[in-house]
């Protein structure tokens, strides 16, 4: 990091300290990307919702206070930039329904389907999304995580944490230990799978990604140099 917070003001109190720590992490992630240490071919965070919005059943015109079906031809041209996709309107919102396309409240059951996409799968996919989110972080930040993990394991703080974990583990009941073991081994399998996947792709060179993530080599533009 080129510049850390001086701590003046920010360092006082728990909320401020947490915020200061959050700032440092956020800045560090961006700096690691600038130095070519993070795979920026994948997005870190996508706010842009246009793709999803286009598939919503309703659109709300903020400028004229009208709720339309997405396909309604009565949406004024001047309102295109003021439309918000709506998945499940509230019953009170129907007062603002367009008289031309007459959007109707989804009936029970259909409501979930609309909120969750055509196959009603969004809710069911929630857990899967979490796992994929976790995997994507390992994938994207793999080299940084490995390096930090190695450093942390051999640091005094890391050793203290290991001791604390050992004490905590010894105090668990048999059932709790079994549950924890299953969780840890599942994570192990997932991490292993991500690594094998990356190595496989790296050797084939199909997407230009290096097998040597652990070395910190950057793949995006092939030279590992920071951008911009």
């Amino acid at each position: 990091m080129s510049r850390k917070p001086s701590g003046k003001g920010v360092g006082h109190g728990t909320v401020a300290q947490r915020a200061g720590l959050g700032d440092s992490i956020a800045i560090m992630i961006q700096e690691l990307r600038s130095r070519g240490r993070i795979d920026d071919s994948q997005p870190l965070l996508r706010i842009d919702y246009r793709k999803e919005a286009a598939t919503a059943p309703f659109q709300f015109d903020m400028a004229n206070a009208r709720l339309h079906r997405t396909s309604c031809c009565a949406i004024p041209r001047g309102s295109k930039s003021a439309l918000y996709a709506v998945w499940t309107p509230a019953p009170e919102d129907m007062e603002l329904a367009c008289k031309r396309c007459r959007p109707v409240m989804p009936v029970e059951g259909e409501e979930d389907e609309m909120a969750n996409g055509k196959d009603g799968g969004r809710e069911r996919e929630f857990a899967t999304d979490i796992i994929f989110g976790f995997l994507s972080i390992i994938d994207q930040f793999g080299s940084v995580l490995t390096e930090r993990g190695r450093e942390y394991r051999s640091s005094e703080r890391g050793k203290e944490v290991v001791k604390a974990f050992e004490t905590l583990y010894s105090e668990l009941t048999r059932k709790q230990k079994e549950a924890l073991d299953i969780t840890v081994s599942s994570l192990d399998v997932l991490v292993g799978a991500v690594r094998r996947y990356n190595e496989g792709f790296g050797t084939n060179g199909t997407n230009g990604r290096s097998a040597g993530k652990g070395t910190g080599a950057h793949k995006k533009n092939g030279n590992g140099r920071p951008r911009g």
């Binding site: 920026d40 997005p43 706010i47 911009g228």
Partner: peptide, 9 residues
């Protein structure tokens, strides 16, 4: 906003 990346200069 589309990818989450920002170069801080």
């Amino acid at each position: 906003l589309t990818r989450g990346w920002f170069d801080i200069r």
